[in-house]
């Protein structure tokens, strides 16, 4: 009865997706192999004249101490990416598991889990971060875990909502009728369909986590190692911004492109996997 009135969807990821993935790939590769590449030591002082603009020797210029901004941006990416990845991986494992379990079993489990999600969501993230980093240390692990805790609720709620949507579907009932155990239904029937929107959110979330780390650095609450946030923080003095804005701008540009890539990749991926459920 309903003839194809929708324009048939383009089942292509498109070049923007591949550009985004390319950027992320290059970023991961350079940061992983940074020690092997001909890059200055990010902490070495006076690798060039202080506060000089971009040149052939120092691609991104140098900061107030004469440190190479390019090297610092590359090494800083390590921390930012690790923070983003760990936070989201943790959020997906913990939030995703809780969300799927809550959405599948419903009842009192759902009530408790959903309440926990709401509690987490209504707790101001910044205050939580302040609390944790000031109570514990400012190590990479603490900062990652802080952001990870904040990622649990949004991802978990998405997992729960998607599970609720699919949990009553006939294919789940069919698996029950065949005699599948709950574990099998969750892993074989629900996980594959819940993973798609979750993965798309995870990519967006990674961007958010990277920005959040930058924000923490601004408050001097982030890691002691170099991160994008730390570099931006270094270059944010009035004098720096007026005389050599590149110190802050270069890591900001890197962050901007990275987050844009994550968002594009996530968005396209969701569209690509958006399961068509009609026969036409």
């Amino acid at each position: 009865m309903n003839v194809v009135l929708d324009e048939a969807e383009a089942k292509k990821l498109g070049c923007i997706f591949w550009l985004a993935v390319g950027w992320l790939g290059v970023l991961v590769a350079t940061t992983s192999f940074a020690p092997l590449l001909p890059i200055e030591d990010p902490s070495a002082i006076a690798t060039g004249p202080a506060r000089s603009g971009p040149s052939l020797d120092n691609w991104f210029g140098t900061d107030a101490l004469g440190r190479d901004v390019f090297a610092r941006t590359v090494y800083g990416a390590r921390v930012s990416l690790v923070v983003g990845f760990v936070a989201i991986a943790f959020g997906m494992v913990v939030g995703g598991t809780l969300g799927i379990i809550a959405g599948y079993f419903k009842g009192s489990i759902d009530l408790i889990v959903n309440f926990a999600f709401f509690a987490l969501l209504s707790f101001p993230g910044l205050v939580l971060a302040l609390l944790i980093t000031s109570t514990f240390d400012r190590s990479l692990r603490t900062v990652s875990l802080t952001l990870a805790v904040l990622a649990v609720a949004p991802i978990g709620r998405l997992a729960r909502a998607t599970t609720l949507l699919y949990g009553e579907r006939e294919f789940v009932q069919a698996a029950r009728v065949l005699g599948a155990r709950h574990f099998r239904i969750i892993t074989r029937e629900l996980l594959p369909v819940v993973m798609i929107p979750m993965a798309a959110l995870a990519l967006l979330g990674m961007g958010v986590a990277i920005v959040a780390e930058g924000g923490l650095a601004f408050l001097q609450l982030s890691v002691e190692e170099i991160s994008w946030g730390v570099i931006i923080n270094d270059g944010r003095g009035i004098r720096d911004l007026q005389e050599n804005p590149h110190v802050a701008l270069m890591p900001i540009a890197a962050m901007f492109i990275t987050i844009l890539s994550l968002n594009f990749a996530g968005d396209r991926l969701r569209d690509y996997f958006d399961v068509r459920e009609t026969a036409f």
């Binding site: 003839v3 194809v4 009135l5 324009e7 048939a8 969807e9 383009a10 089942k11």
Partner: peptide, 11 residues
């Protein structure tokens, strides 16, 4: 007719 990615649908 509806032009689509997979060809023209002659409805």
């Amino acid at each position: 007719r509806f032009p689509t990615v997979r060809g023209t649908v002659c409805a």
